[in-house]
Nucleic acid binder design. Sequence first.
DNA 1: AAAAAGTCTACTAAATCTATATGCTTTGTA
DNA 2: TACAAAGCATATAGATTTAGTAGACTTTTT
Lengths: 147, 147
Amino acid sequence: MLSKKTRYALKALVVLGKNFGGVPIQISKIASEEHIPKKFLEQILLDLRNAGLLYSKKGSGGGYGLVKDPAEISVVQILRLTGGPVALLPCVSLNFYQKCDECDNEETCGVRDVFVDVRDATVKILSETSIADVIKREKNLIENYTQ
Amino acid sequence: MLSKKTRYALKALVVLGKNFGGVPIQISKIASEEHIPKKFLEQILLDLRNAGLLYSKKGSGGGYGLVKDPAEISVVQILRLTGGPVALLPCVSLNFYQKCDECDNEETCGVRDVFVDVRDATVKILSETSIADVIKREKNLIENYTQ
DNA sequence: AAAAAGTCTACTAAATCTATATGCTTTGTA
DNA sequence: TACAAAGCATATAGATTTAGTAGACTTTTT
């Protein structure tokens, strides 16, 4: 399961992605639109800023904006920045690997082998999907929904 | 991430799967072989028994065994029995669905749409993989490893 | 100067997960 | 028949993680 932090980050990035190229958007605006606790969102956006994904502007008329084109930001990147492992087992994680306590030899673990496949399938989808793609999907869904 | 409970269950089922058709295996044997805390494993196997997956025999010479052929037990089934959602978002889970607190309309949520795809890919792999398949994978890994 | 907005750190509350403890029941066997 | 082996069942404790809150500070604009 993704953490709330990750979900909130994705939601916020979609908002910022739609606004790419425009004037900065305030935390409080994103928070109220997306029903995210403001102080929590503050921390999250700060992390994303410190990771170089967002720029910020203080003072009146300030707020946050994307540094890069939303087409250049993949969903998997956000999961890794905000949450942690994409894999379902620590011994299978590419970026948050941890040795399996109970396995004598994880090279020959059949369970692990299955979850390597799951990880690969998941990473494939999430690395091929950008914030821009999420926005496109949303548009398509809205079109078909109101028909 | 899978819980320890789920991992332990899978490990235990692999042991029991290899033994399918033989005499019952004791909790303590599985626990020591697989480095699983015995009392914890007790609870887990009890759950699997109550779910109809295992039979048990009390008293001397007792233990646990699979009720069904390991080829008939899918990995996804074990996750659902022991852990919970396979999906990465509650609003996307087939068996543990929960409404998204922050979404006004989840039918048109682009983020959700992406994680439906991820869920489908994961469920496909894990429902096509049985305990027998895990055992086969293990055998293949061992063969290639010792070469 | 004042207000708007982000920055930073610390803390707390709640939930969940992992594991342990204790006593009970059933079954086989000496 | 007694005893030991093994599972059954429930309660509880400890640890960890997550989610959210608080408060004081800095920068920028008007």
